[in-house]
Design a protein around this nucleic acid. Sequence first.
DNA 1: TTGCAAAGTAAGTGCTTACTTACCATCGCT
DNA 2: AGCGATGGTAAGTAAGCACTTACTTTGCAA
Lengths: 245, 245
Amino acid sequence: MSKQVSTLKEVALPAVTTSARMAGEERRLQILRVAMRLFAHSGFRGTTTKKIAQAAGVSEAMVFRHFATKDELYDAILDQKACDGGMGDPRVFLDDAIKRRDDRAVFETLALRMMLHHEQDTEFLRLLTHSALEGHQFSEMFWERVVTDLYEFLGGYVRERQRDGAFRNIDPVVIVRAFAGMVIHHSLNNTLWDKKRRLLDITDEQAARAFTGILLSGISEKAEARATRGRRAHQSTRRVSSRNK
Amino acid sequence: MSKQVSTLKEVALPAVTTSARMAGEERRLQILRVAMRLFAHSGFRGTTTKKIAQAAGVSEAMVFRHFATKDELYDAILDQKACDGGMGDPRVFLDDAIKRRDDRAVFETLALRMMLHHEQDTEFLRLLTHSALEGHQFSEMFWERVVTDLYEFLGGYVRERQRDGAFRNIDPVVIVRAFAGMVIHHSLNNTLWDKKRRLLDITDEQAARAFTGILLSGISEKAEARATRGRRAHQSTRRVSSRNK
DNA sequence: TTGCAAAGTAAGTGCTTACTTACCATCGCT
DNA sequence: AGCGATGGTAAGTAAGCACTTACTTTGCAA
């Protein structure tokens, strides 16, 4: 590594050309959206109120008319993100699959929902990670509310299926961690590390199917469950995304 | 969520009480160590030169005597971390297991090595994540050098074992991603999100064994490979770490 | 048409930041 | 003893920060 390496990239986000005067609420929302983008990119400390104002095409004073402090603005953004919940309630959109005891559907739709959410709202993962690093309440709240809940819920399902004799007797929490690990790590890779997808370029559907396949084969009690499906789910999906070229 | 939530935690790192005059190189290393801790905690922008100086028990001017700029100090730290490589060369410490075609040993020792490294050098993951979020060269370099290399190496092994007929025909890159996901996500959880291990408290050995078990059963061609081992590797390891109480 | 509330700004305020300057203190060597 | 190299500091500086003040413009209802 050479000297003088660090040059934090400047994102010249083009000032939104909303020339005219805006209604109060409209301007408020616009500032919120703009600030969200900036906070997601540079974190709390890396984003100045001046930049926010410039990106919104107003003076700094306008920012402070709508939000008393920078903290308040940040919290307003996180509030919004927290209300989104993330991707909807798993208890709802997995209800059907769970009743049918369709393990593949349970894990695959969950994986897909998570990855799609992470992909369409890339700011979310960035805000969350920044928050976790900075020790901000948001990440703690998200953990306690969303993550804990998911572990409990999915862990419960796994436990049931173990009682059914369908899954091997592995600590359900470990299974959930393994599954979440594959999915979230993949999303984190795509939004943070390997945006160009140079190492692995597959669609979310392919990823969801592959991860689910590995996990289910990995925890299933019966060998039969493995052979049925998940056999043709791949064969060099690498660098052949439906999205690219 | 209530208003005015954000209060970035202040870490009152006690000033290192090294009263006396120090030799140049000694002081330099001390500042480096102290700064590493602070940068890992608060990132580049969140760490002031004043705090570094205070934590090292010297005046700010001393910091700038040893490092011309804050950037140079940061780079010096990342240089050191990068030279550590991370955890040693997998091609070396996996050599034996690979020659024996001992899949379990290959994945388990790799997982363990990674997790132990992450645990004993928690600053590493934090620095890396901060760097990735801030778009710093360090993360890119790490990606290109270490990560890409690991994918290639481990992917190569997987491909061989597929030719042997031992593994199912899944894209090797996907398999590596799934494996890395479980391991890294678990480490990230322990160092960033759930430091108290409230959700899952197992030793690195247990985690390595469990993840390897799931992965290998998940990708093995033969049903026999599954039953042999990995059967008794757990049964509610939750909340019973050898380290706690 | 006018009046007035709300949208908007220019130019600050005081504090913090990275970094500097000009000076003192102490160690080790002859 | 004494002196130069080196460890160390107090007190800056200019730029940048979050936030304020005092003021101007504009849409629109009566």
